[in-house]
Design a protein around this nucleic acid. Structure first.
Lengths: 340, 340
DNA sequence: CTGAAAGCGCTTACAG
DNA sequence: CTGAAAGCGCTTACAG
């Protein structure tokens, strides 16, 4: 493995000159530079990044924590983050926390040891308890895709989840639905709040008894919750699933219970994952700009790294958008008239 | 940021002793160790991993290249790799190549600069041309999820894709299908070969004209390919999709064309992604042990790192398994008799 | 524009 | 069991 000294010896200069040629921060006479470049090529020299990191104090690596990478939402976040990092010449150190807070804490602790220039935490499931650990981190930290209890000690780039819930609710209201139920995951309180606001605007309430929590954030979980919701109150005409996978399960459950979607049951999801387009009927869903969110968050972080200052501590809320498809229709829509 | 020297000063010892306490490789008198530990705690000292890496030459980081992280297959590989790494105290440097060979090459080049102790390359899409670059890498390299042109210069842990195709074919043969078509992605030649073997065993051929390539490896791509296959030869009774997403598209296409699955069309997929269980009818698919594969590959690599030797250069083929569900049935099965 | 020096924070033999 | 020294391969002021 050739070292910078080897290159210097071969080119007949000192290693500082080699360093200058590589970094370009100090001008080098063209003839000298050419000799150095030739030596680099002949030796197949490639700088030792670890040594550089030790000298500069920067690793050009950014850590990213996500709850999981299975599932379109976080996978998209990962890819977008990687794209931005790539543009700026950074590497990605990935950690999936997988509902294991203890494991998350360990990973966090090891990143603390200077191995990362910045840290982005996506999703609020597993790390919330360990955030204080980060308060003294010597690298910038930002959060994204945060819904519950947005901490004010770090910059946050997230979705306006309240608005997302509201859009879902307003859509059902506009179609005339009055009696509805919610299929939820525990952390989705903000979406439910927004959903309720849409009904409250018309003097209607969505009682707690109409909120059914899925045993797990999966399609089968949604199936279970939807079945519970529809048997608890068969008069329900609209369902809001706080997560598309739950909506997919609800679609199944509706079929099992002989409810026709959207003719006698409307279903609206949240996230607008690609699969939503592929169900039958296609799922109406609240689309959230996840790529945009990831990009904003990581760029904010990289800006802080560049000027080696703390990032501006702000809360940025990106706007969701309702995408109406076939799974929702006017209440009382007679069967046979296809939805959307 | 406290340094080892700071700890040493506070504990009244030299930094070598601190190092010994931390590493445990040299015995330290209990009283001294206690003083050191106290100092570490008081200072909140955490060793600088970059400095350690420079001194030891090991980064305790492993690089993983995957084509993408969106989609259950590679996402699962990523999580399994991370789990194994976590067990061994390693970090994950992730790179998704995203069909961009040039980008892949750049990432590869930068890893070469000593930032990684080992490298696992999953999937053969984007990096195949740059593999020779790795021949002189000073860290162990292994490949997994490799189908086409398995290189012999690196250890490979992959699936017996030929057998996978064969299982799909045999299943259709056992159900009496004779006239079939294949919906394929370009890189899946091995699966098709196995599929053909099952038919050849009974003296039947699957002509090239029966193989329809999807414009892209997505559900819509499968839809297009299936439509082409079924209109080119309406007498086809069985479809093998070399990738489950294509099969999902085929399911849609069949519905559009008024073909009832499995009564007058059987569909078998490949990969057995979780979504396959959720279609209606549920998709028959060839399950491949992707977690197992990822684990074997990464453990092989870690073993090589541990004994700082080249990994045993072998080709390991893991066995696929057919999972029969509702989307396949006996040929000529009258409608109304539900499949599986 | 080029060279000599010090230092980044650790680990690894090697003496005492 | 503990301390003094050298070195991992770079970069960053600082002289010439």
């Amino acid at each position: 493995m050739a070292t910078m000294q080897d290159v210097a010896d071969r080119a007949g200069v000192t290693k500082q000159t080699v360093s200058n040629v590589i970094s370009g921060r100090v001008p080098v006479r063209p003839a000298t530079a050419a000799k150095v470049r030739a030596a680099i090529a002949e030796l197949g020299y490639t700088p030792n990044l670890v040594a550089r990191s030790l000298a500069t104090g920067a690793t050009r690596t950014v850590g990213l924590f996500v709850p999981s990478v299975v599932g379109a939402f976080y996978a998209t976040v990962v890819e977008e983050v990687e794209d931005v990092l790539e543009e700026h010449g950074y590497h990605l150190l990935l950690s999936t926390t997988r509902l294991d807070g203890e494991r998350a804490r360990r990973h966090l602790a090891s990143l603390t040891s200077r191995s990362v220039d910045a840290l982005l935490i996506a999703g609020d499931n597993d790390l919330i308890d360990h955030l204080p650990l980060l308060a003294e981190a010597r690298f910038p930290v930002a959060l994204c895709a945060w819904e519950s209890e947005v901490p004010d000690s770090f910059p946050v780039v997230t979705i306006d989840y309240e608005q997302a819930g509201y859009l879902a609710g307003r859509h059902l209201r506009e179609l005339g639905h009055e009696r509805v139920a919610v299929l939820a995951s525990p952390a989705h309180g903000t979406r439910i709040r927004g959903f309720r606001r849409a009904f409250a605007a018309d003097g209607l309430a969505v009682p707690d008894s109409a909120v059914h929590y899925a045993p797990e954030p999966s399609q089968p979980g949604g199936h279970v919750a939807a079945t519970a919701a529809l048997t608890a109150d068969p008069a329900v005409t609209g369902l809001f699933a706080t997560h598309d996978v739950l909506a997919l399960g609800a679609l199944e459950a509706a079929r099992s219970l002989g409810r026709s979607v959207p003719h006698d049951l409307s279903i609206v999801g949240h996230d607008d994952v690609p699969e939503s387009r592929l169900t039958w009927p296609a799922l109406t869903s609240v689309a959230i700009p996840s790529r945009e969110m990831a990009r904003q968050a990581i760029e904010l972080l990289l800006r802080a790294v560049a000027k080696s200052a703390a990032p501006t501590n702000s809360l940025q809320l990106l706007r969701p958008e309702l995408v109406a498809r076939g799974s929702t229709g006017p209440v009382g829509d007679p069967p046979g008239r296809p939805g959307a």
